[in-house]
Amino acid sequence: MNIADLLDDVVIPAVLAAVAWLMPSLTGPTLAFGVRIPAPRADAPVIAEQRGRYRRRVAASGAVLIVIGTLCSVVRFGATGVVPLLTVAACLTAYGRARAAITAAKRREGWYSGLRQGVVTDTALRTDPERFPWLWAVPAGLVCVGTTVVGVLRYPSLPDRVPTHFNASGTADHFAARSVGTAFFPVFAQVGLTVLILALTWLSLRARPELDPARPADSARRYRRFSVRMAVSLLLLAAFADLTLLAGAWAMWHADRRVSPVLVLLPVLAGLVVVVAIAVRTGQGGSRLPAQDGEETEESTGMVRRDDDRYWRLLGSVYVNRADPALLVQKRFGVGWTVNFGNPWGVVLLLGLVLTPTLVVPLLTR
């Protein structure tokens, strides 16, 4: 049994299924599978029913696909990436069915009929945003510096042709002429990734908050704590990803020694576990954080969050609102932010994230 195949066909699908199973617990009570619902309907039977069905479907399909992946690994059936893709497809199907059922109940029963809808924001986030947690960026910076030092020391002894790609067993199968661009590509990737995550973290701390008009002070405090925790998790993820790139660089600079793909990927997988753990403890927008003194006694304004489902498309994953100047908005399912496709700068940001690696990598490795 090949360890790389086992990672691709068993471990990754198991992680994907586990994260998908947890997703409904990460959003607040007024969001059910990406559907905006008023607080008085948060305990509607259809929501609990669909949550249970979703989790059963995810668990069942995940278990079946893990068994299939295990068999593929045993017989060494070459289908790299197929089982993870099937896992994602199964989870999305379960999510779509739950979302459709809740949306139908919401329309049929008129959940927003006669309710006062409102929007509230924390203007202090613009004038007095949370401080950037620079201390948590130090580990990623140290990993970049350490990789650079190792590369400088190793460069004179590198062969004329250095490996630029490894197969599933960890053996180099593609080489390029030694140059600063090819030999130090992992370092450039580290720096680029770290700068990118720093920029996204800075933007996330200034993203528009999704506050509860019923208890604005409570939700504003929760959101601030949420934004800081998510910023810390992103910076930690940058450090773990840089460690994976360091492991890849070590394999490149010591091509005569086989490095297991599992060891290369282990740091970034550990980073994802840390991010998920922080997300589970925090919840989207701070929905799972414990209340501070005085928050539980805040008097409700009697308003509910605005029904904005019409701006969310493709199963509630894509936000398009040209009247909203926000660049980033909170996701409807899971934890984190997504781009406002109604803002041209949001589209530019997304294109930059996608195209920059595509254009830069060939220049460095040719």
Rank of each mutant, 00 (worst) to 15 (best):
V119D: 09
S157T: 15
T182Q: 10
G146C: 01
G96L: 09
L135T: 06
F185V: 10
V180H: 07
P209D: 12
R97N: 15
R154N: 07
C144M: 06
L125G: 08
R107H: 09
G151L: 08
F185T: 08
T148L: 15
V119F: 13
P213T: 03
S179C: 06
R206S: 08
P139S: 05
R126P: 05
L203W: 09
V162G: 04
V191T: 08
Y112F: 15
D128A: 07
G181P: 03
L198F: 13
G118C: 00
V180K: 04
R97S: 15
V152G: 03
E210D: 15
A189Y: 00
G192A: 11
T194Q: 11
Q190C: 05
A207C: 12
Q117Y: 07
H174R: 04
R126T: 04
A104F: 01
G110D: 09
G192N: 07
L153F: 13
R208M: 14
V152Y: 04
V138G: 03
Q190R: 00
T93K: 11
T93N: 13
R206I: 10
T164V: 09
P139G: 14
R97V: 14
A98I: 08
T164L: 00
I102L: 03
V145D: 04
G110M: 00
V152K: 04
D212Y: 03
